[in-house]
Design a protein around this nucleic acid. Sequence first.
DNA 1: TTTAAAAATGAGTGAGTACTCACTTAAAAA
DNA 2: TTTTTAAGTGAGTACTCACTCATTTTTAAA
Lengths: 220, 220
Amino acid sequence: MNEEQWLEELLKFNGEDGKLSEKQMKILEAAIEMFAEKGYAATSTSEIAKRAGVAEGTIFRHYKTKKELLLAIVTPTLLQSVAPFLAKEFAKEVFEHQYEHYEDFVRTVWKNRYEFVKKYLPAIRVFWQEVAFHAEIKKQLETVFTAHVYEKFKKIVLYFQEKGEIADFPVESVIRLTITTIAGFFATRFIIMPDYDWDDEAEMERTIQFLMNGLRKKEA
Amino acid sequence: MNEEQWLEELLKFNGEDGKLSEKQMKILEAAIEMFAEKGYAATSTSEIAKRAGVAEGTIFRHYKTKKELLLAIVTPTLLQSVAPFLAKEFAKEVFEHQYEHYEDFVRTVWKNRYEFVKKYLPAIRVFWQEVAFHAEIKKQLETVFTAHVYEKFKKIVLYFQEKGEIADFPVESVIRLTITTIAGFFATRFIIMPDYDWDDEAEMERTIQFLMNGLRKKEA
DNA sequence: TTTAAAAATGAGTGAGTACTCACTTAAAAA
DNA sequence: TTTTTAAGTGAGTACTCACTCATTTTTAAA
């Protein structure tokens, strides 16, 4: 997969469905790289222009402000991050026994998101670094999470709790522990210790084993 | 505990053991608040001076550069964050059966760090927000972690693994899963969803139960 | 080939930026 | 009381910032 493709794939949620010009893609590429490295506030538009090989004015032809450029990166990244939960068939698949156990569901999400994080790491970095500073981004995250992720996740958890497969913690706690465990691996693996000699398959097995034992329903 | 005290307590690791002048403390307070809110790069020294009620020049009398001011906040915060592991008696306590089970150890760390996070949240925010952008901070974190936290944590885990209390995962994995689970709660509780109606005691109980079941050694 | 529209340019702009320095004020030492 | 030292000041400095706009270049239509 070449450079143009991954960017267009990431951005396919960005509203403007038309193709991006070559210069526009160079701008986005450069901005993602530099925002990820130095942060949004510490990156100047002139630096972005230089790295992208365009004039500074060209940036402002496509994005009215620097912040609009940030949002053009961050919004599609958020939507792609939760993409599995946005699919209409998603929750249905669970109830039609696509996944016999909660573990099957966790494994599917894990593998799917593992590929995603690997591919779009810089854009994901930008998202999480800047969500702390920009109210618009935080609001987007909250909206997307409550409207899509939480609702569907809840149904899935309730389903497996009724089957007696996982502990009778409050659904919110089960969701939190599941996400925390998976995201905790990704954060350690890709952000905190990316240079450590990871055995990804083995670590996934251990982590999922840990998660399932932690959530397993105990006999009364 | 009044404002002066908490700041001085946080900073008691900062090398200069002498007391801070009133204006100096106002500067640090203002800087912590504003760095936490808007980020280091987006906060100007003139704004800090205004909020602290001092002249801009006063900041640069105490800190040669803006970055030195950041490090004066971030370094003591890192050291306080891992304070329990810095105590000489710490590992010894474990082997002299201060903690009969791994769970006792986890509970002690949890409660201790819970109070800490609650008290110094803004400074902790600054640390984690800026560690991504400043190589010096990242290096400090690595040094402190490998020299103090990892070494002692490892001994504790090995001890309870030999007792057959926790699973024979690699020590690194046990440490990662433990930290991830505890830090995952703190991050959700204080950063991601601070306004949610938390029952901290109950959530701690569930999380520790989850962690211990996840790590428990299975019969062969 | 001419003309019109769109895209790209980069020098220019005013509002900041981190930091300096000659100076004043306050406290401590002599 | 006089002198020394330190803390605090704020206007000034060189420079960078996001953003603009008159002009040129490229593309497409006629």
